[in-house]
Design a protein around this nucleic acid. Structure first.
Length: 199
DNA sequence: GTAGTGATTTTCT
DNA sequence: GAAAATCACTACA
């Protein structure tokens, strides 16, 4: 693969309207240089969370210590802990002062399969496409914790790559796992991927 | 195949 | 004290 076909996404990619970024981030690759080795995966499902007109967003009721990253500069990671067991990875979008992010819900494993399998429960290992099919599963398999919160995505630890051969069929639907604002069609996914969280 | 429940931190009422 | 941007196990049809 020639280097010209791989492009690292810079901060300017995230410094745009969230709903414009969402369909474009599908098919991109997330790369994490973990302490155990290099990991990467193809993003196939995201959800948008935007402060304004979104009661389901963590930031809708003001800034807290947990969600303050979302109010800051775009192009950062936002990892939060939920339900006592799971981490979820978000990408902060839009300009400083506006709280918005994209929640990474699912991806297809690419590099670092051995590490991903080691981090996953025995039962789901038989189905590779299910290894990263959910936000909590993705963070567990990649070994992401609060230590990776507020990471600069233009740095070399955690970043996104645009691989031009990656093709996506984008579909959108209502979001999953929330009670509020279910009517908003802010979930974007690749309908041709086996790894999306909805079967 | 679908349905129900437990685990357990952060934040808000 | 309760709910939340979840997952995986168990039970039952």
């Amino acid at each position: 693969m020639s280097p010209s076909k791989i492009k690292t996404l810079s901060q300017s990619f995230f410094d745009r309207p969230t709903l414009e970024i969402a369909p474009e981030i599908l098919g991109k690759y997330i790369v994490f240089n973990s302490p155990f080795g290099k990991l990467s995966a193809r993003i196939v499902e995201v959800e948008a969370y935007i402060d304004q007109d979104d009661p389901a967003c963590h930031a809708a009721r003001g800034k807290t210590k947990r969600n303050e990253v979302m109010f800051g500069e775009p192009g950062y990671s936002y990892i939060y802990f939920i339900y006592g067991m799971h981490y979820c990875l978000n990408f902060v979008t839009e300009q400083k002062g506006k709280a918005a992010a994209l929640l990474l819900r699912a991806a297809e494993p690419c590099e670092g399969m051995e590490i991903i399998i080691k981090n996953s429960p025995q039962k789901i290992i038989t189905k590779p496409s299910r290894l990263l099919s959910g936000p909590g599963k993705f963070c567990r398999a990649f070994g992401l914790t609060r230590e990776q919160n507020r990471v600069d995505l233009s740095d070399s630890l955690l970043y996104l790559e645009d691989r031009l051969e990656s093709k996506v069929r984008v579909e959108r639907s209502n979001r999953i796992g929330i009670r509020l604002a279910k009517d908003k069609l802010w979930r974007f996914y690749d309908s041709e991927s086996a790894a999306v969280s909805k079967p």
